[in-house]
Design a protein around this nucleic acid. Structure first.
Lengths: 140, 140
DNA sequence: ATGACTGCAAAGACTTTGCATCTTT
DNA sequence: AAAGATGCAAAGTCTTTGCAGTCAT
């Protein structure tokens, strides 16, 4: 039996929130974002819909950053940069792993490769500047 | 003031456990592994030492897989495969992102790139077979 | 003796889930 | 009316932390 999917105002709002931002939000972010417009929204509903959208392939997880799972409304393959200081996640649309790498891993190791993530970690420009200021202060 | 680092039998055992396996263990795995030999070992100690080793650069995190953070005793850069079914993490020593990619991201976007992770997700051979059996059963 | 390390248990943070109620079809 | 979706709060997991006792130097 296929489950019938029904429309829901909040579900729509949650998907719009994720697809309308490039910040790769967490459940909490979505919740805080929608709370003013939907005062009776529950955090559980956000989590349930995030799981639902993921299963439907409408969004995907970017992984857990500083304890919170982060999601991406863009499902086309692309790379990410994660700032180790502020935890922001940024798209790197131009950066792609070599084509054929998935295929090569599949055949070489016998895995079924569903997808491939290329992620860079470091400091974003904003945190870099604050860091430099901090260093200068403490060294003076 | 530099903190003085002291020897500890359990610390040594924890590091050995991580460096002596290729399973990319979680804190819980290390704890269960060492419990027989160190009956009074505490899970808190495992967590504290994992954080300590990470800060020292002796191990690194491979990320959170199915709710648990996983660690790697090999700090030289290499890629990983993560099975979405059983959660096992495997090394792909031969697979490397193109050289110069980090540098290119650094200069193109103004980030300070500390490291770069290339991770493949899919099904490992073992889970693939079970999956096929399962499908055959349900379809028959 | 000093300060680092640990065990223990409590607390914290994030996420999941059971159940009654409300909505969509 | 039937089945899905939600709110609420409790429960579940994983991880961190405070404190008193232990151990290395």
């Amino acid at each position: 039996m296929e489950r019938t999917v029904r429309y829901s105002k909040k579900r729509e709002a949650i998907l719009n929130a994720i697809q309308g931002t490039s910040c790769h939000p967490s459940a909490e972010w979505v919740y805080q974002q929608l709370k003013p417009l939907h005062p009776d929204l529950s955090l559980g509903t956000v989590y349930r819909n995030l799981a639902f959208f993921q299963k439907q392939g409408l969004i995907r997880s970017v992984g857990v950053v500083q304890g919170q799972e982060r999601f991406d409304g863009i499902v086309a393959p692309h790379s990410h940069f994660v700032c180790n200081s502020c935890g922001s996640v940024l798209d790197l649309p131009d950066v792609r792993p070599e084509t054929g790498l998935e295929q090569s891993v599949s055949s070489q190791y016998g895995f079924v490769v569903e997808r491939c993530e290329l992620t860079f970690y470091g400091l974003c420009p904003s945190c870099l500047h604050q860091n430099q200021n901090f260093k200068e202060e403490t060294l003076s």
